[in-house]
Design a protein around this nucleic acid. Structure first.
Lengths: 224, 224
DNA sequence: CGGCGGGAGGGTACTGAGTGTCCTGTGGCA
DNA sequence: TGCCACAGGACACTCAGTACCCTCCCGCCG
């Protein structure tokens, strides 16, 4: 039933556009009643993103499970990869949906609100992990936003292509940049033995070197 | 006329809620025709954010103007401060609107789409500045997202309060964290004095340390 | 001075999304 | 066989947003 509605909706959306298709058209093609459509999908936009609710739940479950011993940023990046996996499961469907969404403002707005829910999920997790860090909530929000941006950058460049690229490799690359910057748990379970390498110009004043070393210790400086 | 509609709308939104107020109610109170409402505001949501269009234009103008010699991240942070200034101009109005938006899903979604436009503006600017950098678009997207997240974190914590805090100080603090991480133009007019700090575990193999140092040289690693 | 064109605003009717309510068929159970 | 729960359908309604046409006002020109 759900699947029949999704199939009918996409057929019509692709052949005559989202705005040119009414819910009545969809239910007529699917051979069901109009009211049933809204029983399965709260709005016309929802039918375009039928699997995000499940993926959101999966991500929440993933973040809830697992020990708090590992790097929070790594964990959050792995959570983002769950979303990528969902897209990569049906490349043809994902590319079609991407092209549709790109053209329809209502769908772009809807997608935005979905992305926001993922981001808030990641931020909530990080806020918990950074609870006892100064400026922990800012750090959490910023990292969550950065992870989502990096993930979406890779996802979109994959969707823009013909689907022949490897989305996982693309995402690894962009998330790698975020990990390079923010990875290396500043929240603790800290490294037990540190080696500090400082490279500086001879002309740099010593106070600046000290400040940078302190800052690197405080925040991990993106490298472990 | 515009102002009269905004005033009437807010009066009704505050006393009976956004969804419980119809456009007919607003135009009846303002004493104008229904059609005129939609001449000034494309949708019912727009009346809640009457000054964002102007602010978006201001930000675009700000980013277009000015030399390309300074740090792009600093410039983007300054652009974000324009938005804060708009909120800070009418604290009472901003706080009322925040409380309204927090409760109404449709307004949250709308606000999201506005924030997205700011973010895309910042990202487009950074993409231009980082055009000849490897992974420049990712870096641009990530920094834009980080700046917006930091800005919104400060803005929201100010709006949640009673308006007595200093919003500029709050924003300086959160944007400062972003600047600390990403500031220091990697795009060139390069820094004249480098300090590279690498912290690693004693067990880390040397090849990895070398790789990290090389990478830090290439990207500036967020610190000057 | 009178006609006139254009733009701002008002009125009416329409489309289409989303909701509430009631009805009907169907399948399980005592 | 009677009963109940529930999935789905039919219908009516609200309200946002749009198209079309009307009116009034204001400056302009013959």
């Amino acid at each position: 039933m759900r699947d029949a509605l999704v199939a009918a909706a996409f057929q019509l959306f692709l052949e005559r556009g989202f705005e040119q298709t009414t819910v009545d058209d969809i239910v007529a093609l699917a051979g069901v009643g109009r009211r049933s459509f809204f029983r399965y999908f709260p709005s016309k936009e929802d039918v375009v993103f039928p699997d995000h609710e499940r993926c959101l739940a999966d991500m929440a479950a993933f973040l809830d499970s697992g020990a708090d011993s590992d790097d929070p940023v790594v964990r959050v990046c792995d959570a983002a990869r769950l979303v990528l996996r969902m897209y990569a499961e049906n490349p043809a469907f994902s590319v079609q949906r991407y092209r549709l969404t790109k053209q329809v403002p209502a769908l772009r707005t809807y997608e935005l609100s979905v992305v926001r829910r993922y981001e808030r999920g990641l931020a909530a997790y990080l806020r918990g992990r950074y609870a006892d860090l100064p400026d922990g909530t800012v750090r959490a929000d910023v990292i969550a936003a950065a992870v989502v941006a990096a993930h979406n950058n890779a996802l979109r460049s994959w969707l823009r292509g013909d689907g022949s690229d490897d989305p996982v490799a693309l995402t690894d690359r962009t998330l790698g940049l975020v990990l390079e910057t923010w990875g290396g748990s500043p929240a603790g379970n800290g490294p037990t033995e540190d080696v500090v390498v400082v490279i500086t110009r001879r002309s740099t004043p010593m106070w600046r070197v000290v400040k940078d070393v302190e800052s690197a210790f405080r925040y991990g400086n993106g490298r472990q």
